[in-house]
Amino acid sequence: MDLDRAGISWRLDPRLPADQQAGERVYARNDIDRGHLVRRSSAVWGDTVAEAQLANEDTFHYTNATPQAAKFNQGMELWLGIEDYLQEHAAQYRRRVVVFTGPIFSALNPVYRGVDVPLRYFKVGQGPGGGISSRAITFGVCWCAWWFVTLSWGFPGVRA
């Protein structure tokens, strides 16, 4: 479903204590993006419009965000490009893809306003199938450049 994000505000996740979340204080008055870990448009689905709208809104919890440089988050050569690639590839081949994503923390990460800011992230797209016949693609990226890219078993049309 194609639902709009207009009018949805970022908010703390009520399932966790507020002091365990990086809220608005990290993003206020700076150029840092609230980088969705689970892409909003990928989560907007369900059996009903109401179910899809709930999923849409649920992606705006701070527990689904990580501080990211705008150029990294919105860059077609980096995070946004990977997200688009996975989503477009799944649509092109009419397949569902399960995506695992997250930060990679290290001692080198800077602390900003009391929050560890990861500089590296991973994203794994797993296609249908199992065992040796399953299809997966793995990306690792850094804010400043490609960190590593590993293709394993590939998607149709992608060589490992």
Rank of each mutant, 00 (worst) to 15 (best):
D4E: 13
G102N: 13
V141G: 05
V44T: 15
W146Y: 13
A52N: 01
G127D: 07
S9A: 14
Y85M: 11
F105G: 06
F155L: 15
D13P: 00
D33T: 10
S42R: 03
T63C: 07
F148D: 14
F60C: 07
R135G: 07
H36L: 01
A69Q: 08
R135Q: 14
I8W: 02
H61K: 14
G46D: 03
L16R: 10
W45H: 13
R135D: 11
D2I: 15
M1V: 08
S133H: 10
D116S: 11
L37H: 02
L119R: 10
S133N: 13
S152P: 04
W143S: 11
K123D: 01
V99T: 12
R94W: 05
D31H: 11
A69P: 03
M76Y: 11
A22K: 02
P17G: 08
A70Q: 08
C144P: 00
E51R: 14
Q21E: 07
A52Y: 04
D19E: 15
Y112R: 05
F105Y: 15
R96Q: 12
Q20I: 06
K123M: 13
S133R: 09
A55G: 01
D31Q: 09
T59W: 00
T138G: 10
W147H: 10
V111E: 15
R11L: 07
G130P: 00
I104A: 08
A91V: 11
R120M: 01
L16C: 00
V97D: 01
G154H: 02
E57W: 03
A6S: 15
P17M: 09
R113F: 05
T101S: 14
F60P: 04
T66Y: 01
